[in-house]
Amino acid sequence: MKIERICILGGSGFVGTRLVSQLAARGLEVRVLSRRREMAKELILLPTVEVVEANVHDQPELIQHFRGMDAVINLVGILHESKIGRIDLPSARRGDFQKVHVELPRKVIHACGQSGVQRLLHMSALGADPNSRSAYQRSKGIAEALVREAAMRHSQHENWYLNGPKFIRGYDLNVTLFRPSVIFGRGDSFLSMFSRLLRMSPVLPLASAGSRFAPVHVEDVARAFADSLDNPATYGQTYELCGPNTYTLQELVAYVGEVIGKPRGIIPLGKWASYFQAWAMEFKPGRKLMTRDNYYALCTDNVCRGGWPPVFDFQPASLEAIAPEYLRADTPRARYEDYRENARR
């Protein structure tokens, strides 16, 4: 089946903006569903892109916007819940992660069936596990199971009830899942965060300093999604996406310090000190840097079990080839110039 029209959820986000740009450059028609149209201003200018204000959690709206599409891509995800409850109790972990990572994919699957969409690409994450102690990883793991089950049941041409009306008999849903390691690039929320912390403090106490990552460039993640769309070899597959090199968290933070010219003392924290630092940071007002759920996620290394998937005929960029350019520019003056450029002033 030739893919020409794609609907993207999360198209105005960090990965989404790159993916939409790549798809538009290939001449494909893209519909981006966004809470607020102004959040996707740079995408509106692309000739084959339509930005539509929509509530992606409203299933009738999803069905309406999926009609006429050849494929749907779900990139929606969050790193923190807005309200921190008793995360030591599994039964209490049913907040924003449940809504965004579990209930939304369920609605997307159902809307695909009702609107006749036969191709679904879904963003998961390394470490996704329905049995994880981390609510983030657990919700991602449950979503993976939902997507795989949907594909399996559809491929067997069964009628399947999912919170309502039955799916179309004989309807095929070809799915591909992606599990990236931490994603880096201009505007990321990982390396850039440490860049700002290192500029402010001469010493940095670091929780879970030994956790391992294989950072992957945002453009490479977007290209993997784009290349998978109409490739039957990717149907039913799950791809782990990692960069070419592996680092501990301490090595990454030290590297950021060297790049920005702010080498700092890093104090690796032990298990319990890491936990209590995460617990204390939950109560920090404003944007959260770390929570206990993040700590639980960091207990699992964020690295791939194999190399770059051979189905993609390109090699991922290294951190060292990309990060210095945007990390060195992450200064108040440089950010001001970025704002001016985005505002076309």
Rank of each mutant, 00 (worst) to 15 (best):
C7D: 00
G10W: 09
S12G: 02
S12C: 03
V15H: 02
G16C: 00
T17D: 04
A24E: 11
A25P: 00
R26C: 09
G27S: 07
S34C: 14
S34E: 13
K41T: 12
I44P: 00
L45C: 04
E50N: 10
E50P: 01
E53S: 14
A54C: 14
I63Y: 02
R67H: 13
I78T: 02
H80T: 06
S82W: 06
R86M: 11
I87N: 14
L89T: 15
F97I: 07
Q98W: 09
K99S: 10
H101Q: 09
H101E: 04
K107P: 05
I109Q: 07
C112K: 07
Q114D: 03
Q114C: 02
S115R: 05
H122C: 05
S124C: 11
A125D: 06
E149A: 15
A150E: 09
R153A: 15
W160P: 01
N163L: 08
G164E: 00
S189D: 09
M193L: 15
S195Q: 05
L197P: 01
M200H: 12
M200A: 14
P202I: 15
P202F: 15
P202E: 10
L206A: 06
S208T: 03
S211G: 04
P215S: 07
A226S: 15
D227I: 03
L229G: 08
P232Q: 08
T238P: 00
T238V: 15
L241T: 06
P244C: 09
P244D: 07
N245E: 14
N245P: 00
L249N: 03
A254Y: 00
E258H: 11
I266M: 02
P268H: 00
A273K: 14
Y275R: 12
Q277H: 14
M281R: 06
P285E: 08
K288Q: 10
K288A: 12
T291Y: 06
N294D: 12
L298R: 07
T300L: 03
D301Y: 04
N302W: 01
V303G: 05
C304P: 01
P309H: 07
V311W: 01
F312Y: 10
D313P: 04
D313R: 09
D313E: 12
S318L: 02
A321D: 11
A323I: 05
E325W: 14
T331R: 06
R333W: 08
E337S: 08
E337V: 09
Y339G: 09
